[in-house]
Design a binder for these strands. Structure first.
Lengths: 145, 145
DNA sequence: AACATATTGGATAATTTTATCCGAAATATA
DNA sequence: TATATTTCGGATAAAATTATCCAATATGTT
């Protein structure tokens, strides 16, 4: 369902939020270690998330990645879109160029329902809320925290 | 959601069924052309589907791929599993090894709902039924038929 | 028997995704 | 100012996916 890069991105962003809620900035290195992802690859993904302003970053000592109220309007769907584009959310799931309500592919109407659930999954909770659940120990990102 | 190979596989199988319902066997070449997929790559995918007995094949002149009542118990979920494995249906969507009801990842419970819809999408109609819809012009596989 | 058609299987190539490396830029601290 | 830390950006490498090619096998037809 998600590319490897997107999996890392989702875990990274939630981890960044958990730490930002405790007023800590985190390095790409730390993030990679905590979520079990290769550090350099994680850094590349974080570059894109930063460029898209989904998280913030500061260079230098005591720098790192963080999230605050200025990033509170983004959700996991935005993260997925930044990393993987929006094939998951739009376009024909079988790759037909001319697929529409009037000229549907065999999966067209069923895919609508699947996508509705995917949307709910990725938009119903804020990134901050997801981080709070991790902090509370209700969910986990690895073998972390 | 689906790999390119799976997209081709789904379209191939449904196309084979449409032709088998008219008592025609079809070559890998014809399938590739009709569904807009590279012929050699399609042939490779068809090899796997044949090995899994999702469709039948006969070599030589007037040979080709076909489906009959002996293949009627398979559905699109089987096709997806043969080509892509079952990552879409099981395992943690974020790749966590220790993800469970008791120790869930942030998406665990939402993913259950998404997968329920994916299951419905891929199992509720038989391959034959999907082919009939194409034959009736209610759905399409390309710019075909 | 010879020939043409079609799948099968293996090897190879191209492309995309995943991953690594390194130097440059920014910045806090001593 | 010098140094250490950290992101940024580009180049490169490795692995997986997608795609192509060709020879071998099977089989129907002439």
């Amino acid at each position: 369902m998600f590319s490897q890069a997107t999996k890392y991105a989702i875990k990274s962003v939630i981890y960044i939020w958990t730490q930002s809620l405790e007023d800590r900035k985190v390095s790409a290195k730390e993030i990679g270690q905590k979520i079990g992802a290769p550090e350099a690859f994680t850094a590349k993904i974080l570059q894109n998330l930063t460029k898209a302003k989904i998280v913030g970053s500061i260079k230098g000592p005591n720098g790192g990645f963080f999230a605050d109220e200025s990033h509170a309007n983004f959700n996991l769907k935005d993260v997925v879109k930044i990393v993987d584009g929006d094939q998951l959310f739009s376009g024909c799931s079988l790759g037909l160029h001319k697929c529409s309500e009037k000229n549907p592919c065999p999966l067209h109407f069923e895919v609508v329902k699947v996508r509705k659930e995917i949307d709910i999954m990725l938009t119903s909770k804020s990134l901050k809320h997801l981080a709070v659940e991790v902090i509370k120990g209700q969910t986990q990102l690895g073998n972390i925290i």
